[in-house]
Design a protein around this nucleic acid. Structure first.
Length: 655
RNA sequence: GCCGGUGUAGCUCAGCGGUAGAGCACUCGAUUCGUAAUCGAGCGGUCGUCGGUUCAAAUCCGACCACCGGCUCCA
């Protein structure tokens, strides 16, 4: 067969040749330096034969200088770790096969392996495992790849490792079943593996570290065994590893739970209940600002605001179809006068009843009902986290009732509203995820495919295309009543998170017998768009707090400025300008503690107050303030009136 | 909910079988100072909870609770 090198040269190779053979054919120097290859865009190792019929394939030999080879050593490290764990247990008197192995893939910055060990792994085992790993790397065990027929492959694992057995059984017929072996039977490790790997363990850069031990269900299914997952990170260079660790440290400083405590924004009290946050005055102020902002935005965009109670009769949720399917995710019912009431887990049914309260004409549509609706959901205790995952939260909720022909335009308006709002908050790195139904694997949830699904999906796709929004698609995450459009972003810790969600609903209209009279005088059922721009105020606030590291812009800062009098004799002047600023609706505090100015400035900086106003003799005489901006060393002096005008301008511009 | 880890003063942490400690914060006093921590004194803890072992438990053991890292879930 023929392969094409990056410089366009053709290379003739025998059938079954590997990338190693290709490198050798090019030259002995390259053969020595080679560590992997890119073949038609796919990462290959030196051990696996190039794809059959690869004639004309473009091949690029990788050396340690090419960052693309990173997954190779991360993958091999997972194997090295598995070997190390087996060695550790062998030392503790177990047989190697007592340590059962599930999967060990490459992930974003490293790798993990899911392990079923005879005794639980403990955190203190990690350094022991890491030490053995370093030795295996130093011993430079060569890797080999071999293929077995399905029967023989199964024979290796049957009755020994149920996980590998299941993996092989689930491989599609005709799929090649390959193994990678490092070292030998006496000192080494063999694993069922698709590859690719580095050619020997000595080629793994020593810049790795085991980071954590965690539980993980076999195949992510909570009804199956809980395995132990060891996470590791690995990089090509020491600098990359150190940079990553530094980044993680920095990110931890921005954790909204930490900042929430440091800046007196919110607290969670065990006595109130877990997942039920308490907003302290400063946090509550910002939350109110967010609500006020959204309230005005929604007015501009043609929404009507409604208010509904926090609980509802169980009948409402039978009508909606949420009971009994979501009963386990709701707070237990309250029995009153022989009837059951639930804390509301969502606002839609209440809004549907508002729609229904008066007869509707096509002239009323689209009808956009919005509410900052507080809902309660019984989330699993292990998932709760600060304000980002709670059991009681307030949604920036709205339901848009419209005709089928209006769906696309309404979705466009929703997407545009996202753009507008997120831009105002300086959030630019977000994308949409269109979640589609999975009829094949979950017919109970999604029912039958049909034109309503097709039309709904087509309308959302059209809206996304027309607005040019960035989006990805995912199968199986739709709701039972329609496709879902989530808004995704990345937290400071690099994790992808859904910040908001929108759903198209062609079922509730029927379930609740919602109607409108169309142009022809006929009764028609509206389609409903569930939309939440900020998602929940709680989670949005958590994200935004991390995004800004607590450096809120002036319009959102609970305290916009702190006045620092240099000595007590300047207190009168400080009070005078504070009064003047407050009359102009500015939020200002005076630091009148018996502290040195340096201490006051330091504390104001730590509290991330946007403006520090130092006043001393010079300022009092001239009616000015000395302004020091947050995190800026330089200062300027300006008249109080001008300061007020500048602050107003910034508040206006939301800067 | 499940797996692993952690719970000592409001916060950050030391102490890890023999009478509970430090810094910061707070209160009081002194200081009145020009751009990131002035000095001194005082207040403050049934060491997460309950039970066990021991002459003696913050310290060892068990159960529970909360939190952290994951898994799972997210209408």
């Amino acid at each position: 067969m023929n392969v094409v090198l990056p410089d366009g040269k053709q290379l003739e190779l025998p059938q079954g040749a590997t990338a190693r053979d290709a490198a050798q054919a090019i030259g002995p120097g390259l053969a020595k330096a080679a560590i992997g290859a890119i073949v038609d865009g796919d990462l290959y190792d030196l051990l696996k034969p190039l794809p059959e019929g690869a004639s004309g394939a473009k091949i690029k030999i990788l050396t340690e200088k090419d960052p693309e080879y990173q997954p190779l050593f991360r993958h091999t490290l997972a194997h090295v770790m598995a070997q190390a764990v087996r060695e550790l247990y062998a030392e503790r008197g177990f047989k190697p096969e007592d340590v059962k192995l599930a999967i060990g893939p490459v992930i974003e910055n490293g790798f993990y392996y899911d392990i079923d060990a005879p005794t639980p792994l403990r955190e203190e085992d990690l350094p022991l495992i890491e030490e053995r790993m370093r030795r295996i790397v130093a011993d430079d065990l060569p890797l080999q790849r071999f293929v077995l027929p399905r029967e023989e492959a199964l024979k290796r694992f049957e009755g020994v490792d149920p996980y590998k057995t299941e993996l092989i059984r689930d491989l599609p017929e005709g799929e090649e079943i390959s193994f990678y072996k490092q070292g030998d039977e006496r000192y080494g490790f063999t694993d069922l593996c698709r590859g690719p790997h580095v050619p020997s363990t000595g080629r793994i850069p020593p810049h790795f570290k085991l980071t954590s031990l965690a539980g993980a269900y076999w195949r992510g299914d909570s009804s199956r065994p809980m395995l132990q997952r060891i996470y590791g990170i690995a990089f090509r260079t020491k600098e990359e590893l150190e940079h990553y660790l530094w980044q993680q440290e920095e990110a931890k400083k921005r954790d909204h739970r930490k900042l929430g405590a440091e800046l007196d924004l919110f607290t969670i009290s065990e006595e109130v209940g877990k997942g039920l946050p308490l907003w302290l005055p400063k946090g509550a102020f910002i939350r109110r600002q967010l609500e006020q902002y959204m309230y005005e935005k929604e007015l501009e965009h043609g929404y009507d605001h409604v208010i509904t109670p926090h609980i509802a009769n169980s009948k409402l949720y039978y009508t909606s179809g949420h009971l009994p399917y979501y009963k386990d995710d709701m707070y237990a019912p309250i029995e009153i006068e022989g009837e059951e009431y639930y804390l509301k887990p969502m606002n839609c049914p209440h809004h549907h009843m508002i729609y229904k309260a008066r007869l509707k004409s096509y002239r009323d549509l689209p009808l956009r009902l919005a509410e900052f609706g507080t809902v309660y959901r019984f989330e699993l205790s292990g998932t709760l986290s600060g304000l980002a995952r709670v059991r009681g939260f307030t949604q920036n909720d709205a339901h848009i009732y419209c005709s089928k022909s209006q769906v696309k335009d309404e979705f466009i308006r929703v997407i545009q509203l996202f753009d507008e709002v997120y831009k105002d908050f300086g959030i630019s790195d977000y994308w949409f995820r269109l979640s589609l139904p999975d009829f094949e694997n979950n017919p109970a949830k999604f029912g039958e495919p049909g034109p309503h699904w097709d039309e709904a999906i087509a309308a959302i796709r059209a809206a996304l295309e027309e607005t040019g929004a960035q989006y990805v698609e995912g199968i199986g995450e739709a709701t039972f009543y329609g496709p879902k459009l989530d808004v995704q972003l990345r937290t400071v810790l690099g994790k992808e998170e859904s910040i908001a969600t929108n759903q198209l609903d062609f079922i509730s209209g029927t379930r609740f017998s919602l109607e409108f009279t169309n142009e022809k005088g006929e009764r028609e059922t509206p389609v409903i768009i569930h939309r939440a721009i900020m998602g929940s105020f709680d989670r949005f606030f958590a994200f935004y707090l991390e995004h800004t590291a607590g450096n809120f812009p002036l319009w959102l800062s609970p305290v916009q400025a702190v006045i620092v009098p240099i000595a007590d004799r300047h207190l009168g002047y400080a009070q005078q300008i504070a009064a003047q600023m407050r009359q102009n609706k500015l939020r200002v505090e005076i630091d009148d503690r018996s502290e040195r100015m340096n201490a006051k400035i330091r504390d104001a900086e730590l509290q991330k107050i946007p403006l520090i106003l130092v006043v001393g003799d010079k300022e009092a005489e001239s009616g000015t303030v000395n302004l020091r901006e947050r995190h800026a060393k330089e200062q300027r002096t300006l008249p109080v009136g001008e300061l007020i005008a500048q602050m107003h301008k910034r508040v206006q511009e939301r800067k």
